[in-house]
């Protein structure tokens, strides 16, 4: 009884606090120990693999239901819209070479209307910071989901190709497949 009263009170309180579990879940997702799930709009969830700095899955929650099971080992519930089943991560494209990057998760922030994830990507002494913003609201009913990415620290002429499976499925504002990050500008990509 007491726990039920508390749940109701906390639900009310939590609206004033950031990192509301209704919007963001930092427990494990679908067997990934280091993952994060972020809700976009009413029913879309984006699940990230924090160790690879990649989007693992996008899914639509069943109508009127939660998109995740409860507990630490959460599982996604609903219709899968995108899934990256590979183990691919980010590479550095420089001087016609593809160099593997080491990934280090830096954290998560909540800003006005969005969540932002950050990673450090490193090749030997070269370091870049990858930022990815997920809007809390969905921009349009015409798309399934959207994300915005940018990278800091790239040299001119270098680029970070989006991991393959992501690049094929996600489109840029010009409605072409998203290819790579080349400068510090935010790049909006969406799942048509």
């Amino acid at each position: 009884m007491l726990l039920s009263i508390q749940s109701a009170r906390l639900a009310e309180e939590s609206r004033a606090l950031l990192f509301d579990r209704v919007r963001i879940n930092r427990y494990s997702l679908d067997g990934l120990p280091r993952s994060i799930s972020i809700r976009q709009g009413q029913d879309i969830w984006l699940g990230y693999d924090l160790e690879r700095a990649t989007l693992r899955k996008v899914w639509r929650a069943p109508s009127g239901k939660a998109g995740l099971t409860s507990g630490f080992t959460t599982r996604s519930l609903g219709t899968t819209l995108f899934e990256d089943k590979t183990q691919e991560s980010w590479t550095l494209h420089t001087e016609q070479q593809e160099l593997p990057l080491k990934v280090r998760y830096l954290g998560c922030s909540q800003g006005e209307g969005y969540f932002e994830l950050s990673w450090e990507l490193r090749y030997e002494s070269r370091k870049f910071v990858l930022h990815e913003r997920i809007s809390i609201s969905k921009d349009s009913d015409a798309i399934k989901a959207s994300r915005t990415l940018r990278v800091k620290g790239l040299r001119s002429g270098d680029s970070l190709p989006l991991p393959n499976s992501a690049g094929e499925a996600w489109h840029s504002a010009e409605n072409i497949s998203a290819k790579s990050l080349t400068d510090e500008q935010w790049n909006l990509i969406y799942l048509p």
Partner: peptide, 17 residues
């Protein structure tokens, strides 16, 4: 008074679920 950033200071060890 609210915390906007949950900075990951370290997770440099393997973990499972």
């Amino acid at each position: 008074g609210t915390f906007e950033t949950y900075r990951c200071l370290s997770h440099d060890w393997p973990s499972t679920i």
